[in-house]
Amino acid sequence: MEMLTPEELSALQLSLKVAFSATLFSIPFAIAAAFAISRLRFPGRSLLDSVVHLPLVLPPVVTGYLLLVTFGRRGPVGQLLESQFGIVLSFRWTGAVLAAAIMGFPLLVRSVRLSLEAVDLRYEQAAGSLGANPLWVFLTITLPLTVPGILAGAVLAFAKALGEFGATITFVSAIPGETRTIPVAIYGYVQTPGADGSAMRLALLAALVSILALVVSEAMARRMTLRDA
């Protein structure tokens, strides 16, 4: 493989930065959402379940458009974030993180939820009988037993974030070094006459990073089972 041009390299770095941030950022929210959906009984539970799964079924462009309308500089949440905290999401890499996090969120929640539902409630009862309050039971029993599901979901969400295109380009466009991730860059090169080489190199790179993520997740899974056995 030839050396990467600075432009391609920046797309790679940006993609990794966005995907890592999106995954890390969404893990706590996903755990909370999965817990609420699988363990709590409250009136809006099925609504929450539907909203969480919405990005899975909506066309990504629609998700991106909704993000732009809500979190854009003129959107209600976007205005609030800018005036109160000085945070601007639209056309910034942080916006790309938000788009990627939301697109990967259903995958992460699903995985965490399955794992959470597989945790034997009887362990939690045993912990309670030893005097542990519900929060401590959650932190020391439920959460550790859910870790395999969290990791598996995180890998899925990371892969999804790396490949995210539609919502990203709609919400934050394709600004080099800021929001032009690998998929967005590939699309750009394909549209540009004579840039086929760049498109091909980035495509290979995307495949390489994805395979690497898969290998890492396999290794993690194997280590988990070895430790459990």
Partner: peptide, 19 residues
């Protein structure tokens, strides 16, 4: 609440925390 009763419970299946 269960955690405040201070009643020990030995279950039929032990229920040792697997992790």
């Amino acid at each position: 609440r269960q955690s405040r009763r201070r009643i020990g419970y030995v279950f039929q299946d032990g229920r040792l925390f697997p992790h």
